[in-house]
Amino acid sequence: MTGIEMLMTAVASLQRDDLERWIANQWVRPDGQPGEYVFREIDVARVTLILELRDELHIDEEMLPVVLSLMDQVYDLRRRLRRLDDAIATIAPENVRRELVAYIADPSP
């Protein structure tokens, strides 16, 4: 957890007005209010990622929301699939698990 000043120091290439625009766009979602934002580790990593996408990979700010939205959806799917996997491993009896694996592995009906 860190404040905006600490974040600006930690991420050298970050410009304050960029960060504020990203927060306004909800690309970065810190806790707290304007003037007293609190950034978690995931927020810091996300700021770094956005900088990298924009400055290294030249994905400009027009395209960034598309990329971020797709990325967020992929991560969301991955979390849900892992949860589903956990649920099956925990709850389903052995024979049901085997049938599920066979069903998923078979590409043809």
């Binding site: 979602r29 995931i42 969301d76």
Partner: peptide, 9 residues
């Protein structure tokens, strides 16, 4: 913890 950036705003 990644749920913080779930799907869309």
């Amino acid at each position: 913890g990644g749920r913080r950036y779930t799907g869309s705003a």
